[in-house]
């Protein structure tokens, strides 16, 4: 799937979770920069999973630290 289109959809999904209005780039980290706690991560991951009809297992999540890696992972999962 097209990376730009995927990114646009994820941009919209992350907005309600970005409570502090951090300017998000590919290098933005979820725990360090956005201060997501475990519950926020679960809800955010669920929103992405539902939007794209995919599973992002905990094992896969462990490899994802920043926003760019998340977009890449979703692109890959959609094949």
């Amino acid at each position: 799937m097209d990376r730009e289109a995927t990114k646009a959809r994820i941009d919209a999904l992350i907005e309600p979770f970005n409570k502090k209005g951090v300017a998000i780039t590919d290098a933005t980290r979820f725990t360090d920069d956005l201060e997501f706690d475990s519950l926020t991560i679960m809800d955010f991951v669920a929103a992405i999973e539902d939007e794209f009809d995919i599973i992002i297992s905990m094992n896969q999540q462990a490899e994802i630290e920043n926003y760019g890696q998340l977009i890449d992972a979703v692109v890959k999962l959609k094949g």
Binding site: T31, Q61, A62
Partner: peptide, 10 residues
């Protein structure tokens, strides 16, 4: 990012 479920802070 999952690690936060049962991992202490940095």
């Amino acid at each position: 990012m999952t690690e936060a479920v049962n991992q202490p802070d940095q």
